[in-house]
Write a protein that binds this DNA or RNA. Sequence first.
DNA 1: TTCTGCATGTAAAATGTTACATGATTGG
DNA 2: CCAATCATGTAACATTTTACATGCAGAA
Lengths: 183, 183
Amino acid sequence: MLNTLSYGLLGLLTSESMSGYDLMLRIQPFWQAKHSQIYPLLAKLEKSGYVQYERIEQRDKPDKKVYTITEKGRTAVMAWLGEPPTEATTRDELSLKSQCIWLADKELVIPLFLTRRKQLDTKMAYYEKLLSRISEDEQHVHSPKFGDYILLNRAISVAEAHMKWCNWVVSMLEQAKEQESSQ
Amino acid sequence: MLNTLSYGLLGLLTSESMSGYDLMLRIQPFWQAKHSQIYPLLAKLEKSGYVQYERIEQRDKPDKKVYTITEKGRTAVMAWLGEPPTEATTRDELSLKSQCIWLADKELVIPLFLTRRKQLDTKMAYYEKLLSRISEDEQHVHSPKFGDYILLNRAISVAEAHMKWCNWVVSMLEQAKEQESSQ
DNA sequence: TTCTGCATGTAAAATGTTACATGATTGG
DNA sequence: CCAATCATGTAACATTTTACATGCAGAA
């Protein structure tokens, strides 16, 4: 039994062989993991026979190891895929900060939500960019891009919900600020 | 400098003194942490003077330690609150599984999204229940319940977005399944 | 009578982050 | 010239999870 990140990496390799660096970039939006976690994991997966790699020499760029999933790897992914998904976990500092905004100056807390709005803007632009790269004939169930297609759609609509919420909170805080200053 | 969870616990203690057990229950929906992480952290916070505790003996129930934030704790929370929030991180096994549904049987993958739907149903019911406990006059910016009020609203609308997405994906998968069986 | 909730704690293992380490190329 | 991108790796540290440990009361 492997850990979730390992299965995630194997899952990505089912559609395309790629380097650890590429895997890092592709898994980032859906599972935050640094290269320092991914490289040792790939080495372990290689030793256990879930993947193989080929060293590719490049001009102008450093050499890379291109990983390919093995039959054993594919079997393992399929077994994992059949099991029910565990619940998602989210860790958001802003939610902890929200718990104590009631006793702080509105001037201090409004910027928190403005910062978050900017973060969401950046993310959404990134998601939209990735989504625009998926052509219409790649948007069907049997396309290897189908996963990206549905996940980017989810990411965008969830980000929109967060954005609306930020605006709602900011409007409440600004109303309170006005009332404070008029007294 | 403390870690995020520590600030979160202190933040909750700004509105009300409570036990480690209560803190665990109250922080769970927004920051997943087990008691085995919280108890040692509270002990550390107590040693460093951010909180104090009083042992309360109870009939029918085990004794408990009721923690109260100190002036030092309150100062620390306020300093932390002023800093911009770091970005939220989400880890969802279903998003990794989504990446490789293209090569699996639809029969195998549809249940993944049905399971997720059930998980969302349970969560939403829980959020609604908590939200219903917040009276209208506790829904304003200066109420200690304001944090809960806005966070529960966010949790519900985000869960709704996830639910819609699940339905969308399921409908696509079922359409594909029908086409498969008609061939 | 067995399970759940209340209530606290420790120890070990797994997972994740930050920092150290190297080095070429391209764009601003 | 400085920063970013590509590309891989290790070591130390911090965080989180799982398992071990106890024990009473009330509900099913």
